[in-house]
Nucleic acid binder design. Sequence first.
DNA 1: CCTTTAAATCGCGATATTTCGATATATGGA
DNA 2: TCCATATATCGAAATATCGCGATTTAAAGG
Lengths: 102, 102
Amino acid sequence: MDIEKSIAALNNPLRRRILEWLKDRSNFPPALPEHTDLEGVCVAYIQEKAQVSQSTISAYMSKLKDAGFVVAERHGQWTFYRRDEAKIQAFLAVVQNELLKP
Amino acid sequence: MDIEKSIAALNNPLRRRILEWLKDRSNFPPALPEHTDLEGVCVAYIQEKAQVSQSTISAYMSKLKDAGFVVAERHGQWTFYRRDEAKIQAFLAVVQNELLKP
DNA sequence: CCTTTAAATCGCGATATTTCGATATATGGA
DNA sequence: TCCATATATCGAAATATCGCGATTTAAAGG
């Protein structure tokens, strides 16, 4: 849990919105038939929704992954990203502990 | 509550540590006799502990203030900074709400 | 193989942040 | 009024981040 990386990853409105979108698969187009069993959302879908370049989305997802907020899983040509709820909670716990008195 | 400013303010280890230090007045030298009734810590004390230049500390405290995490109160030549616990809690609530599923 | 598609990486200019020293402002006291 | 002290603001150099297009890598299919 690198709090430095985590806060840096959150220090961007679009990255935070992506994390919110990933709460619910239905924020994205339905999965392809061959992917319906997989968790997570492929990069192309996230890009379409985020309306930024492919390289930007890739870098964003990479940053969210390095921060521990999402998990990447490759299946063939596709990379599926999904939230890591445990890590997100762990991060919040640390921040709370650091910020709140005492 | 500008979450953008708040996260940016936290995106710096020293600023976060200053927030922690301010949890407890005893992290700093005792107040001058004429200030014992005042809450908060003057900039010079924070600077001494943080070991950065006076201009850096001033800018840091300003950023923490703009983020709403601290309150500044001027008394004569001195500015006393103290945590704004309510604002800090409000920020945490917003972040939790944004990050946590659902 | 060759092509197509998905995603990651590279290189870059633009912009923002960091941190400083120097300077300005405000206050209190001799 | 003049000087010392406390803090804020300015200007600049170093570094980091942003977001793009171009290129590379990886996999699938013909």
